[in-house]
Design a protein around this nucleic acid. Sequence first.
RNA 1: GCCCAGGUGGCGAAAUUGGUAGACGCAGCAGACUCAAAAUCUGCCGUUCGCAAGGAUGUGAAGGUUCGAUUCCUUUCCUGGGCACCA
Length: 1012
Amino acid sequence: MEYKFNEIEKKWQDYWKEKKTYQVSNDSDKPKYYVLDMFPYPSGSGLHVGHPLGYIASDIFARFKRLKGFNVLHPMGFDSFGLPAEQYALETGQHPAETTKNNIATFKNQLDKIGFCYDWDREVRTSEPAYYKWTQWIFLQLFNSYFDKKENKAKPIAELIKIFEAEGNNKLQTTNHKPFSANEWKAFDEPKQLSILMDYRLAYCGYGEVNWCEALGTVLANDEVVNGVSERGGHPVVKKKLRQWYLRITEYADRLLEDLSRVEFSDAMKEMQSNWIGKSSGAEIDFEIKTMDDRRQGTNEQQSSVVEGRRSLRVYTTRPDTIFGVDFMVVAPELDLINEIKTPGQTKEVEDYIAYVKSRSERERMAEKKISGCFTGAYAVNPFDGREIPIWISEYVLAGYGTGAIMAVPCGDERDHKFAKHFNIPITNIIGSFYNGEEANPTKEATLENSSFLNSLLMKDAIDVAINKIEEEGIGVRKVNYKMRDAAFSRQRYWGEPFPIVWKDGTAYPLDEKELPLELPHVETYKPGPDGEGPLANIPEWVAKELETNTMPGYAGSSWYFLRYMDPHNDKAFCDRKVSDYWNQVDLYIGGTEHAVGHLLYSRMWTKVLFDLNLIGHDEPYKKLVNQGMITGVSEKLIRASSSDFDEPNELDIPNKSTSASTSFWVNWIENKLPFSIQIDDGEDFYVINHSVELKGYSLFGESLINVPIEFVNESVLDINEYSKEKSNINQPKKTPEVFVCKEGFYNSKTGKWFDFDKIEITPLQFKTIPVVEKMSKSKRNVVNPDDIINKYGADTFRMYEMFLGPVEMSKPWDTKGIEGVYRFLKKLWRLFYDEMKGKMWNEEKATDAELKVLHKTIKKIEEDTERFSFNTAVSTFMICVNELADLKCHKKEILEPLLILLAPYAPHIAEELYNNLHSSHVSPTGGDLEGASVLDAAFPAFNPALLVESSKEYPISINGKVRANLSLSLDLDQKQVEEIILQNEIVMKWLEGNPPKKIIYVKNKMINVVI
RNA sequence: GCCCAGGUGGCGAAAUUGGUAGACGCAGCAGACUCAAAAUCUGCCGUUCGCAAGGAUGUGAAGGUUCGAUUCCUUUCCUGGGCACCA
């Protein structure tokens, strides 16, 4: 009777499905527990081995909690709106709804084979109208709410209107509008009133910059922009202002930050979120601006200050204490102010620089090590000492943060310092010896010098003094700032939730709730509409109804899906209040760190809004968050062997055949097999062509056909991006290669140049591959499909192996080689119950103390490891347990039955099968009558500590910290007794060489160290 | 560039609170069983010196704290993730 995993797993999966074993009720006497996975985007390439890592972990935990007597909610669904489906539609014409449906079917099929305990009756799909009806509904709540700054919570906008009608906006803490009285408010016409209200709504309309590609006529995601040009086609991309929807998440910044103390996220995760929110305090300071004209008129202060409508430059700084060290100002290139202040002499330079910056993504701007900038010709005046400070523009200052302008203090700020050095701006030292002239020193501990009224103050103390003075003099205000910006909430795309909004004469009106869901119409083409609008703008009826043509972004549906699982079929509400009160928070949320800020912050915000509006009873969605690492794939990268490699033996005599299995191996180029990947450097441009190619390779395991993505790179120039950067100059964005390979040679479609094969240096026919660890993706051809593994080894082996690979939180490369060990373990476990030759092995004999000790040691460790998500060590523990029971030749039901319960969360199929057999009268392991109790609802075995009590311990004896001997000692000895025994020890005496020890350290139940 | 994480044998890893570094598994080597293979079982397995006993050395690198450091501190290198329109 052998372990036939395929029969067993099929049988139980069918049985569970038929009996609806995993159906969860919203009504139970048991305590509730909610285990949630981040639901997947159903991509076209199907599930790969990276997906299930977190799912298996959560499944184990959900099953574990069930055994512990909880009513466990463990649902699954699909985040099915998104860009890739639309991209695919553009290429193939297939409707995203169609491809999405097919992809979901594939995903579900694959997920089911792994044996997860999902309640599929609760499945949600964000792209289904029945679901997005409520996404739209929540959007309307956001639209119809404002944030009351005094009470620090969201309230219906109707209440704000009442306030305006009663007292105007005078008492509101806001700088949005000029004050108006109640009467003035009533006198405003409707569009005026609505436009004021728009500035308070939690979902509001504004203008924002997007990546605009003129050639494609579309807005591009950051992902689609590579080196400043579009990924598709290599067309130039510039910034463009478009009307966009936003969520006023900044109003929740403080609560999102403070409430981190109430959730169990890792410190790293909390840190990332709080850094993202980026709360800082400091001051906004106004610097008067002097243009060249002013300067020519002389520096008479009196005269300047009477000029009417005088411009000033407002900066935000966290270090107002350094105000006497300001040597220049830097303004973000986007600021309109620049046009007003630039001097005629600088106009050309400024315009060129702004054009250059427009071509660069925000990411590039921040990552650039190179210093760039441009002088405006204008000067600001230091409000305290009247010093004239040149105003520069530079891309390192971002328009979206603070006021978009900074005061630069080179002696105290690294970036300011580099900028000053680069442009030869003189540096003022206000921190004496703390500044060495070479590097900025960002300390707050220095004593200020050359700083007028701040002189001799410690910088950290001077901050407050400076702010007070600034406020007194009326030149600025104390200010708290957040790095976080309001969340852009609209996309110029098709495959997303339509906004329930109509536009009438430029004013947005919400649709009535009764009109929801506003269904996504079918389109003829997925191409963008006119002027950067989304594809919905191509539909005459849609435009005629004046409906919003933008759609919601990917994170809309995922910001509240955890609530829908609780009450997925409700058509009266997004979730019944009683039901959400029962399930409350997600107790355990498992997902990748890549969502550390985006999704987690948005869903936390939505939860808080729903809480504020009294629609749910809790204001944090997730009680505990566990981050799973990524499973990376290993791809072989082909590189040309260097000249020294040619001395190596050829494939007939493979080097190091016996020693290395995974490192480089040699491949023999198969001539004339095209296409392949090659670099061409014609002296002007530099190209890389990537193609996948089938190579006949000689691996160390013998001859095999391998698929490798190859990148033919000269070893001396490994990084193509670096190379291109050097070559491209500021005003000329890099061209992407468009080179075709055909039999005659290579053809460059852009330059029209031909390269014959014989003119290109590809003489060597030897290449070697090097293994590279990368994210798994279809294009890299390093995707491992779980189905293949399951067919070969079974779902239980797959589940345990994924856990055995290492800690869940850590990312690791997938390697199937080790799976044999887990498979052997399950077969060995099986042999404790059934032997191929001897048949049934298990018996009802009474267990011995040694056997009970093995069992209870295991119970303790499995329980602890599962609780702390250390699934890899739990799998080791199972292995150790089975090894020990096999050594003891233990086949006793008394031991094996509890072991199966422990194992059930990890390997549910085999556990269910064997458990069922222990309780069934049938002998056949696969023919059981299914009448026996199910292991899924067994009670988790209780650990009995009495069985593990020890009276002595094998102590390591160290001499100066190095272990030299072992000695078994009773646990109730005291220091003095131990010292006596130790000094008699032969080995210790040898090391002491007759001298007395300096000290003997005895840590009970740990170790003994003799210091000599 | 900024933020976060990680770096331990040939490989995946373990060491839970500063206390025997390498549990468990893969690969490898030697052996048993077998006509043979598969499966299974037994032993060895960081590096290095040594016949052995036993030394030396060893957790990315360099310093430090400590009787004792993979663990704490400082500096530094490398890899992965995120940086706001991928989800």
